[in-house]
Amino acid sequence: MKKIISGVFAAVLAIGFSAFTAPVKKATLNYYFEFDYTAYSPTKANVEGSAAWKISTSTSCPNAADEKACKIEVDAAKTHLESGVRKINPGTNIVATEFLPNN
């Protein structure tokens, strides 16, 4: 019994301490933005620019073959209201991978 008591005590301390220091999950508010195909062509540079994304009103993405850049989910902290319209903050880092089909 003496041989295991220290181990059991350490285990109880560890579990208690980890529960005590566990991060509190905060509810995050996100917005969906869709790529504005009417104003911008879907190049890598445009996709990575915050101006090309408008607040999403549709529930699904367009079906056109070339329109790969579709919808992104953005943390509310990286958006702002401009004349009542929600926009992505300028300078927000959007990273896109360009799809290059094999020739």
């Binding site: 181990g7 350490a10 285990a11 301390l13 560890a14 301490f17 980890s18 529960a19």
Partner: peptide, 18 residues
């Protein structure tokens, strides 16, 4: 052994909780 049990269980539980 107690110190190691504390370290390993603490980090394991923290990983599971997050």
């Amino acid at each position: 052994s107690a110190l190691l049990i504390f370290l390993l269980l603490y980090t394991a539980c923290s990983k599971i909780l997050d």
